[in-house]
Write a protein that binds this DNA or RNA. Structure first.
Lengths: 124, 124
DNA sequence: CCGAATCCTAAACGATACTG
DNA sequence: CAGTATCGTTTAGGATTCGG
């Protein structure tokens, strides 16, 4: 049995849901994956994630910082530099997250095949 | 190193991204968690997930079926009954997914504390 | 009971211009 | 460089109604 059930928690009436809603989402996951490889600066992240906008990146970084998953370090140089890195809490999240990405990598063929089957079944 | 990196895949130029975008999202995760406990019918799911609407549930179930993660079985009774259950592929996804929920359960206090810290720091 | 179709609102998002 | 601010658009989502 899963931990959260063993703990007797009601998933839908508990902070877990709001944490999950924020973490199991598109941009947070992608940002964390990038920062996990190495600490990165704002514009590096902007380039690394092709389809994210300035706005979403800013917002995502704020949220992740607020949740204690990454740190924002300002270097007082000219021009100024800002570096984002995982916290210990953030690193602890990477295990489940990487497992999820690995699952997607390993099963991408199966998912594609399922799409084909579904489409051809619909045609009938 | 993670599997997907060992495989030399570019996360952002590859089907993994679209799979991840669909799986690492709010409603799919919640639906899968419910169906994982036991096969469920439409209205059972509607009641089990308090804040989902008819529409989002229908759509989510379709997507998950299309991705080969669950099956839709129609029982020809009066009134008709429809049962949703995990496929083998769907079950294989539950490991990473449950790990994620467990992480949220175990670290909910840490996240809450991070929020407190962030807020009090902002006040200064 | 299961779901499709419709309409409408709220939220997410992108593009751009601007500031320290 | 690292953002914030504003605006306009697109999408997600809810409420409701209808049909099988």
């Amino acid at each position: 049995m899963a931990e959260w059930q063993a703990m007797g928690l009601d998933l839908h009436n508990c902070p877990i849901r709001s944490i999950l809603d924020q973490v199991a989402a598109k941009w947070p996951v992608l940002i964390l994956l990038e920062v996990h490889q190495e600490p990165k600066r704002f514009n590096m992240l902007l380039r690394a994630i092709p389809d994210i906008s300035r706005r979403m990146l800013t917002q995502g970084l704020r949220d992740l910082e607020q949740n204690g998953l990454l740190t924002r370090t300002l270097f007082d140089t000219r021009p100024p530099a800002v570096e984002y890195a995982l916290t210990a809490l953030g690193r602890s999240l990477m295990d489940p997250l990487l497992a999820l990405v690995d699952w997607a990598a390993l099963n991408r063929a199966a998912v594609a095949e399922a799409h084909r089957l579904y489409d051809s079944a619909r045609q009938a």
